[in-house]
Design a binder for these strands. Structure first.
Length: 486
RNA sequence: GGGGCUGUACGCUAACCUGGUAGACUACCAGCUUUGGGAGCUGGUCGUCCGAGUUCAAAUCUCGGCAGCCCCA
């Protein structure tokens, strides 16, 4: 079937992922119908496939939270200005990005209200009232919501949006040890969601002091590498220590009768992960959605003409029956598109498995099954389709994760000196991994001279640190990952 | 934070420089026809980002806003 030139420019993606990544990325998430721009800069509409994927991430994370004893709450969207000012570093970190409500109708408010960039301040004001005794602790609450951060950098769909959806875990403990134990558990929990649902690998690390969350004592995160060699922050968990507790008066009377400030944690996973997912797994044909996040896991494309249409469609409904309730399937029975057109469309949308069925298949009681990630085709007997596709979906999920992990490993480069660091950062990108003395001057030099930053101190690389700081040559205290970042 | 570019129908684009009937392709709708990798025919619907200014007349010139993109820090 001949296709007209220009048809591709209408519907398909016009650039190669390897040749123009940022253009490819935008086209992939927009043209696939995953998300779309709206009239508000940097704020997206999530279309059904995109929102379904988020719901999957949300449900999985929420179930894991609940299993771990975390309870959901909800706090207001608007935060009084005086609350934001209570913790000095916090307000300094966020004030440039805060959107304000200043009017109701035509009258000006006495005190303007912030559209939450994060909810520490309004939540902790209540926490101070709710916590009185050691018996009230630990108090482990979470909320699912949207926040607004009016970034000045150019927005990128999902990866850098001005409004995004996330969870905010805000927990309170009597002791630092308990807070630290939770932090480790949460980081594990997030890594599992990334692997099992988003099929994404990342590096678990601690942030440097200059990169840590505004107001936190220590920040931990999972950092991803995108195909363009830039690093992007994934889920995070912060040890707030007693910083917010002191600012907001979150204290309790302990078993020994003494009043003590509590220790707190904050943790989040956001819709940015969907951007990382799209960027990591997609190819020149469009998105590749991990099966666990796919609204349609298997699309059945009937091959029919006017005479055999009814028979073929009946056969297709047998197929969907065979797939059963476990697999989310859809029969594309539209008769105004050719099969080839449909193949291209579903591939762009990233549906993990395609099943083709026509007269040929009816006569052999089989169907053609095609994998989105590898393009592999197989003829499968009707009676075996359910088990076959189920296994294939599992394999795709695993394969995507393994590829993500491999990409991360292959783009992590050991560097011993500043020149090597420079050639990685200024060249193809990826993580430059090497020693750091721990001094802020060296970190600053990386930022100002190379436009890169320390994207975390990987937790599992800090035993027996040897070698020298890549910048100043003094003995290294840590092994760090350095990259340009989103 | 600094600098630059762009905006015409769902999308891609012509007319813009030199002001004067907004045109093609695609999509969409109706009908016919076709269907194993983006088919074909006929007819139809839809548009100058928003606001102001200049002018007899603005897609076109000027200013502002909004939105998108790129480069530098």
């Amino acid at each position: 079937m001949a296709s007209k030139p220009g048809k591709e420019t209408q519907e398909g993606i016009t650039v190669k992922k390897s040749e123009n990544f940022s253009e490819w990325y935008t086209q992939a998430v927009i043209k696939s119908g995953f998300v779309d721009y709206t009239a508000v800069s940097g704020s997206l509409a999530f279309r059904p496939d995109g929102y379904f994927a988020w719901e999957c991430v949300q449900r999985a994370t929420d179930a894991a939270f609940k299993k771990d004893g975390i309870q959901n709450v909800y706090f207001p969207l608007l935060i009084p200005e005086k609350f934001l000012n209570k913790e000095k570093e916090h307000v300094e970190g966020f004030s440039p990005e805060v959107a304000w409500v200043t009017h109701t109708g035509k009258s000006e408010l006495d005190e303007r209200l912030a559209v939450r960039p994060t909810s520490e301040t309004i939540m902790y004001d209540s926490y101070a009232k709710w916590i009185r005794s050691w018996r009230d602790l630990p108090m482990r609450y979470n909320q699912w919501n949207n926040v607004v951060r009016w970034e000045f950098k150019h927005p990128t769909p999902l990866l850098r949006s001005r409004e995004f959806l996330w969870n905010e875990g805000h927990t309170v403990f009597a002791t630092e040890e308990e807070a630290n134990a939770e932090r480790d558990a949460i980081l594990k929990l997030y890594a599992k969601v990334l692997k099992d649902y988003l099929a994404l690998a990342g590096v678990v690390g601690r942030k440097t002091d200059s990169e840590k969350f505004a107001g936190a004592q220590a920040s931990y995160s999972i950092e991803h590498l995108l195909p363009d060699g830039l690093c992007v922050q994934g889920p995070d968990c912060h040890n707030d220590g007693q910083n917010f507790a002191k600012a907001f008066g979150i204290s309790f009377i302990d078993k020994d009768g003494k009043t003590k400030y509590a220790y707190q944690n904050t943790f989040a996973i956001s819709t940015r992960e969907l951007g990382v997912m799209a960027a990591t797994h997609g190819d020149d044909k469009g998105l590749v959605i991990p099966p666990m996040l796919a609204r349609i896991q298997a699309v059945i494309v009937p091959i029919f003409n006017e005479e055999n249409m009814e028979g073929v469609l009946t056969y297709c409904s047998l197929i969907s029956k065979e797939l059963g309730g476990k697999i989310r399937s859809h029969v594309d029975s539209r008769d105004s598109y050719t099969p080839g057109w449909k193949f291209n469309e579903w591939e762009m949308k990233g549906v993990p498995v395609r099943i083709e069925a026509g007269m040929r298949d009816i006569s052999t009681e089989k169907a053609v099954v095609v994998r989105r990630d590898t393009g592999q085709k197989a003829q499968v007997e009707l009676k075996k389709l359910g088990a076959f596709v189920e296994k294939m979906l599992e394999e795709i999920q695993t394969n995507l994760y393994e590829k993500s992990k491999k990409q991360l490993e292959e783009n992590t480069h050991r560097v011993e000196n500043y020149d090597a660091l420079k050639s990685v950062v200024k060249g193809k990108g990826g993580f430059a991994q090497g020693g750091w003395c721990g001094l802020e001057d060296c970190e600053k030099k990386i930022r100002t001279e190379l436009g890169a930053k320390i994207c975390g101190i990987p937790l599992d690389l800090q035993k027996n640190v040897k070698g020298r700081c890549i910048v100043c040559g003094k003995p290294a205290k840590y092994i760090v990952n350095i990259a340009r970042a989103y």
